[in-house]
C-alpha cells in the first residue's frame, strides 16, 4: 500500500504516470496471482488483473476511500473472475515455466523435483475446489489478507470466510491423500 494513500490517490486522479506506476508495482502481481488461481489459467489471470486495474483507474475519480484500495481492487478482480468462470468453460492451463516459487536454490535436484511436483499437485487440487473456497485460500495464503478483509472482498461474514478456509484445507487434504481420483 502506498504510504500516503490520500496523496497518491490525488496524483492518480491527476493522471500522473508515477502514480500509475506505483499502482501497478503495488498491486499488479498480487492481482495477477489471484486471478490466475481463480480462473486456473496464467494467461487469463494476466488479462483479468489488467482489466481490474483498468477499471479501477477508469473510475478512480469516483473512489471515495470507504474501503481500502487493496480490498476494492481484489473485489473488482474477484467479480471479474467469477464472471469469467460463469461465462466460459475454463480449461486448466499450466505453463511449463510455472514452477514452485519457494524451492530453495540450494536444495538437491531430487528434492527440488519433489518440491515442484508437490507444488503442482497442490495447485491442481486447489484448482478443483469450489470458487469461493479457492478465493479464500488464495487471499489468505498468497495475499496475507485477514479474514475480515477477505469477507469484505467476497461479501461474506468473517465467520463464513473462516469456515470456507477450514473446509478448503480439509478438502485439499482429502484430495491429496493417496488414492484420491480427480
Amino acid at each position: 500500500m502506498p504510504e500516503d494513500q490520500e496523496r497518491w490517490l490525488e496524483a492518480l486522479k491527476a493522471r500522473e504516470e508515477d502514480a500509475v506506476r506505483q499502482l501497478v508495482r503495488e498491486f499488479g502481481e498480487p492481482l495477477r496471482r489471484y486471478c490466475a488461481a481463480m480462473v486456473r489459467s496464467p494467461a487469463d489471470g494476466e488479462d483479468l488483473a489488467q482489466e481490474a486495474l483498468v477499471r479501477f483507474v477508469g473510475a478512480v475519480d469516483a473512489f471515495r476511500g470507504e474501503a481500502s484500495v487493496k480490498t476494492y481492487l481484489f473485489r473488482i478482480a474477484h467479480n471479474l473472475a467469477l464472471n469469467h468462470l460463469a461465462s466460459s468453460a475454463v480449461i486448466h492451463e499450466e505453463l511449463p515455466g510455472e514452477i514452485r516459487e519457494g524451492a530453495s536454490p540450494a536444495a538437491s535436484p531430487l528434492h527440488a523435483a519433489q518440491s515442484r511436483e508437490e507444488g503442482r499437485m497442490l495447485r491442481e487440487a486447489l484448482a478443483r475446489l469450489p470458487p469461493q473456497q479457492r478465493a479464500v485460500v488464495a487471499l489468505r495464503t498468497w495475499q496475507d489478507l485477514s479474514f475480515k478483509e477477505i469477507g469484505a472482498v467476497l461479501g461474506l461474514a468473517e465467520g463464513t470466510a473462516k469456515a470456507h478456509y477450514f473446509f478448503a484445507l480439509r478438502n485439499l487434504r482429502r484430495r491429496l491423500e493417496p488414492g484420491d481420483e480427480p
Partner: peptide
Amino acid sequence: ALREAAPAPAPADWQEALVLRL
C-alpha cells in the same frame, strides 16, 4: 505447503507493458 506453492511471477516485461497501457 500452499504458501510455498504460489504461482510463479509474471514475465518481467508484463508490469512495464501494463504501466504503459494504463
